[in-house]
Design a protein around this nucleic acid. Structure first.
Length: 1084
RNA sequence: GCUCGAGUGGCGGAAUUGGUAGACGCGCUGGAUUCAAAAUCCAGUUCUUUCGGGAGUGUGGGUUCGAUUCCCACCUCGAGUACCA
């Protein structure tokens, strides 16, 4: 009876689907096992043979675990929101939902053909409203949460508000924005709702803020850091520029430490964990303050340029501080609108000018803004006098009433902006006040080298640069800043060798020695890391060393201070050990560890610094200016974001005319005409109805690709639940993924963000575990085997063997026009192929009458015409052969080249397996007792297959199956007692043939849950061993001896052997080493 | 540059508490079967050789009775990361 894979496979695939064989239940007495593949994006290109590699491995594990008696959850679904469908929609006008649906259908067909044991009843798609309802729900949970450093977890925002109401924010230890103004409980309670909302945004785990983002003009959207590779977009390779935009961000930085710590508790590949550690980038060190010593105009006074107070400054400054901490409602609102250069210029609040404290001032424009409460009505005269004095000092004064600020902030701001436009730039004055001293704050991992500080370097973008630069250096500094700004990120990255920088002319004061330290700017200091400033210690840091030497001898660059008892004439001494500190005052004689500790201690003692941990991990931008993504459940009232209540979710993606940004530059959702939120009807209504009273505009951005994939593994546990994202019972039963398989390209994207969300959901008590995947394996890539034809300089095509030394141009040949096994080119097919029309009439130079193509291993890709489609392999050899061959290629985690020719080996194996069970007439099984040899090979196979599957070493178990079948074939084995367990062993790898054989053995039920055969040592016990006999470690011959023979007898027997005498040629061995059961080694 | 991983026949790869290097498969060679081919089966296939052997797991050294496996130095390839203070 012939083995007909196509018939058998179609039959069993149908059977599994009809009987829902692989449907998992959420209640079971069996132990659970959850095995998951990383979420596929259903691309238009379909699957190539590389894609199912991980799916086959996970399917083998899933099927094996079912045999082992586990209740197995093995689901599949689609990460169906994403850029490619949208790009396609822009080009063709086709709705992305339609292309996505088509692509999913094709994916499903392809997956079904390979015979996976997925529980399709739990399929999820991120673009389904029933699914993204819960993505929106999680977003709302994040919005309604803050990170409490005291409890070290996320808490509901209400607990924060409770603290504000009772104590203000001074005592709150939260992960939040930098530079949050301090307020008291009274002030908080007095703030308007908008002011309160503005403040809360600075604490929420997802927040709306103006941030520097990676803007990709070609894609028309922002990208996350992990979506950029080498300065260009990961998808499409388009340039990316920095741009300031108001965006939703995720406060992932709150979880930096826990994300790092959690890595120690999960069994993920070391390289992947290392990537995450690098991405989080923890460094431990100290933050140190260096007072600025000198200021412009050649004056050496320690008086900062923005200090404009008069003679009473020392008294007034306290009052000003008090005022700052106790703003009126109107002041708070206006400050929130002015702070941080929101109107384009820097404003200061409650600032001393002469003997007045003004409410707000923009020093660079000489504009004072006063907000008057009721009290001012009675003192208009005094105000006029005050205004006159301020005018005399060169300030323009404008006044607003409290009601104006509270009621019409937009109008007030418009006035301010207009006045700013008309005011001339005024350089910072140099007043006589006693102001606080201004500091440069740096972060360093080497506080022990504090006495080696030779100069300081600020990032060119650093806020202080403009203020401290001396007149003499001003031109040079400005020119440098301009030049740096022009250089794109990419240039800056490509060119790391060029050293550049400029001296500012200013000096800072060393906190211990009080020596002046010159301040430089240089673009090797990154504005975005730490404080954007470094204390340069050339003797201990390569970059500082290079910088110091480059500017050696120029103004502002002193001799390098060496504080190590080591030579630094050639290079910096950057090691953290092997030195003693010298010329370092109280640190003398210490090494790194002790020095670090002592230095921090002393810095803290004099108030110049403290220990600090810094992370490279930045908050993640969560808005995308795209159509095909989850809409935010957010509408805006007076510019403040409001969440839509849970019961009205999902907010469905609206229909739009076109998928491009609007003419005014708004995201594609700006094209939607029905995209407003009616707060009385609680539904999405036409934009025409927006009145900003009960109907408000909805958010126009959508969520990024990683939103839906950051929690899908939890949804599979209870995928059809409409009441919750999964029931507590289901979550508590399945808990976490036992085995997660996928590509390593997700290391710092999906795999980091999803851990963040999981920890957040854990904090909120929604999920029972804070790490969602116990074990993770990265499958290696399957590489393509590209084919080439060679064009000579005179336009002929020459067969590979004849190329020789001549210059030829290789051209990718489509695998469709070659014989993949013999490498022979089908010349007629080649000529007829639309890609090669220009070679229609070309002359072919053949060898032995054939044109042989060259082969080269490259990434499998459409553009290289080396893609192998699994459908074709299944049709030709069968899915079982494909599954086994993919596993047989090599270790799962390694990259390996595809070679279709190798299929025949596995194909032959399955035919031989089939033949053990059948003869020409049909199944042919005997119930006779098998021989000892048959049992031995079966149990060897049980042992090896079990060990291998537990170690995810699938290639070696396929080898063992081959050995087993070859042996059983030789032994003419058709014994039920052997062939039944063998069918079960093979079933995870080649499930279709296993089912067919199982039914041929007379069973009614599917093989899928039959108990796995048990290994029994007794079948492997041997009475003798063929000992390898080595001389000086080299094996020379073999000798069969009983295993129970004593060492002495073995030695005697070996020495008497003729071959031993031959090897020794009369010499007496110095030593004979005998390891019973293993080896005999004769030395001498 | 740094971090991680890997270097074994013509090819994919196997073998590590240090104990017979090259399992298994592809390819190749020869043979059987066939009118012929495909398919199938059998034998051989690391290199070298004067057929006794000898050499051999990227290179050089070391530890050991014995090293693909452990240690040191170096070379090559791949992946990640990139002025992170």
């Amino acid at each position: 009876m012939k083995y007909t894979p196509n018939e058998i496979e179609a039959k069993w695939q149908q059977y599994w689907a009809t009987n829902q064989t692989f449907k998992a239940t959420n209640q079971s007495d069996k132990p659970k096992y959850y095995v998951l593949d990383m979420f596929p994006y259903p691309s238009g290109a379909g699957l190539h043979v590389g894609h199912p590699l991980g799916y086959i491995a996970s399917d083998i594990v899933a099927r094996y675990k079912r045999h082992q008696g586990f209740n197995v959850l093995h689901p599949q679904g689609y990460d169906s929101f994403g850029l490619p469908a949208e790009q396609y929609a822009i080009q063709t006008g086709q709705h992305p939902a339609i292309t996505t649906e088509t692509n999913i259908k094709r994916y499903r067909q392809q997956l079904d053909k390979i015979g996976f044991s997925f529980d399709w009843s739990r399929e999820v798609r991120t673009s389904n409203p029933e699914y993204y309802k819960w993505t929106q729900w999680i977003f709302i949970q994040l919005f309604n949460s803050w990170y409490n450093n005291e409890s070290d977890k996320a808490e509901d925002i209400s607990t924060l508000v409770a603290i504000f109401e009772k104590e203000g924010n001074a005592t709150v230890n939260a992960v939040c924005d930098d530079n949050i103004a301090v307020f008291t409980a009274e002030e908080w309670n007095g703030f308007s709702s908008e002011a309160q909302q503005q403040i809360l945004l600075q604490y929420r785990l997802t927040y709306l803020a103006e941030t520097e983002v990676n803007w990709c003009p070609a894609l028309g959207t922002v990208l996350a850091n992990d979506e950029i590779v080498n300065g260009v977009s990961e998808r499409g390779g388009h340039p990316v520029v920095r741009k300031k935009m108001t965006q939703w961000s995720m406060r992932i930085s709150a979880y930096a430490e826990r994300l790092l710590e959690g890595l120690n508790r999960i069994d993920w590949t070391e390289s992947l964990k290392e990537s995450q550690r690098n991405w989080i980038g923890k460094s431990v060190g100290a933050s140190v303050k260096f007072p600025i010593l000198s200021f412009p105009k050649g004056e050496e006074k320690a008086t900062p340029g923005y200090m404009t107070g008069g003679n009473n400054a020392h008294l007034l400054i306290e009052k000003a501080k008090e005022n700052r901490n106790n703003p009126t409602e109107a002041e708070a609102i206006l400050w929130n609108a002015l702070r941080g250069k929101q109107v384009g210029y820097k404003f200061r609040q409650q600032h001393l000018i002469s003997n007045f404290i003004v409410d707000f001032v923009c020093l660079s424009k000489g504009l004072v803004i006063e907000v008057d409460g009721g009290i001012h009505d009675q003192q208009q005269e005094k105000d006029a006098e005050r205004t006159a004095i301020l005018n005399e000092l060169g300030y323009k004064v404008i006044r607003f009433k409290n009601e104006e600020v509270i009621g019409d902030l937009d109008g007030v701001l418009e006035t301010i902006v207009n006045v700013l436009k008309t005011q001339p730039e005024t350089p910072l004055s140099f007043g006589e006040g006693q102001g606080e001293r201004k500091y440069i704050e740096v972060f360093t991992t080497r506080p022990d080298t504090i006495f080696g500080v030779t100069f300081m370097t600020l990032a060119p973008e650093h806020d202080l640069v403009a203020q401290i630069t001396t007149d003499a250096q001003k031109a040079a500094v400005e020119a440098y800043i301009e030049a740096t700004a022009k250089r794109s990120e990419r240039e800056r990255m490509a060119d790391v060798k060029t050293i550049s920088g400029v001296f500012t002319g200013a000096y800072a004061e060393h906190p211990f020695t009080k020596e002046p330290i010159p301040i430089w700017i240089g673009d090797y200091v990154l504005a975005g890391y730490g404080t954007g400033a470094v204390m340069a210690v050339p003797c201990g840091d390569e970059r500082d060393y290079a910088f110091a030497n480059f500017f050696k001898g120029t103004e502002g660059m002193p001799e390098i201070k060496n504080i190590f008892n080591q030579d630094i004439s050639e290079e910096a001494f950057a090691a953290k050990e092997g030195f003693e500190l010298v010329a370092s005052d109280f640190l003398n004689g210490l090494g790194y560890k002790a020095g670090l500790q002592k230095a921090i201690e002393q810095l803290e003692a004099i108030g110049a610094g403290q220990a600090k941990v810094n992370y490279r991990l930045r908050d993640a931008v969560f808005s995308r200016q795209r159509y095909w993504g989850e809409p935010f459940p957010v509408y805006y009232v007076n510019g403040m974001p409001q969440m839509i209540a849970d019961e009205y979710l999902p907010i469905r993606l609206p229909e739009v005319e076109k998928y491009l940004p609007t003419e005014t530059g708004e995201p594609p959702l700006g094209n939607a005409t029905v995209w407003a939120w009616d707060t009385t009807k609680n539904e999405v209504v036409s934009n025409d109805l927006i009145d900003n009273e009960t109907v408000f505009p909805l958010e126009l951005n959508t969520m990024p690709g990683w939103a839906g994939s950051s929690w899908y593994f939890n949804r599979y546990m209870d995928a059809n639940n409409t009441e919750a994202f999964a029931s507590q019972e289901a979550l508590n039963y399945w808990r976490e993924i036992d085995l997660y398989i996928g590509g390593s390209e997700h290391a710092t994207g999906h795999l980091l963000y999803s851990r963040f969300w999981q920890k957040f959901l854990f904090d909120k008590g929604v999920v029972p575990v804070d790490e969602y995947a116990k074990k993770l394996i990265n499958q290696g890539m399957i590489l393509g085997n590209s084919a080439f034809v060679y064009r000579t300089e005179d336009g002929k095509l020459i067969s590979k063997g004849l190329v020789g030394d001549q210059t030829v141009y290789p051209i990718h040949a489509d695998l469709a026009v070659i014989n993949d096994v013999t490498n022979e080119l089908d010349i007629e097919a080649f000529k007829a192929h639309p890609l090669y029309t220009e070679y229609k009439d070309a002359e072919f130079i053949l060898e032995d009458g054939k044109y042989i193509v060259g082969r080269e291993v490259e990434k499998m890709s459409k553009s290289k015409y080396n893609v192998v489609n699994p459908d074709i392999i299944c049709a030709e050899y069968g899915a079982d052969t494909l599954r086994m061959y993919e596993m047989f290629l090599g270790p799962l985690e390694q990259a390996k080249p595809w070679n279709t020719a190798g299929m025949t080996g596995v194909s032959g194996f399955l035919k031989k397996l089939w033949r053990l069970y059948t003869n020409d007439e049909g199944f042919n099984i005997t119930d006779a007792e098998p021989s000892k040899e048959m049992y031995k090979v079966l149990h060897q196979t049980i042992k090896k297959a079990t060990e291998d599957i537990e170690n995810f070493s699938f290639n070696t178990s396929v080898s063992q199956f081959m050995i087993c079948v070859n042996e059983l074939g030789k032994l003419k084995c058709n014994h039920r007692a052997i062939l039944e367990p063998l069918a079960v062993l093979v079933s995870p790898y080649a499930p279709h043939i296993a089912e067919e054989l199982w039914s041929g053995l007379g069973h009614e039920e599917s093989i899928s849950c039959v108990a796995y055969p048990k290994f029994e040592e007794k079948y492997l016990v041997e009475s003798s061993k063929e000992y390898p006999v080595s001389f000086n470690g080299k094996m020379r011959f073999k000798l069969e001896l009983p295993l129970d023979m004593s060492k002495e007898d073995i030695e005697k027997t070996v020495m008497e052997d003729e071959r031993t005498q031959n090897q020794l040629q009369g010499r007496t061995p110095k030593k004979v080493i005998i390891v019973p059961g293993k080896i005999i080694n004769i030395v001498g």
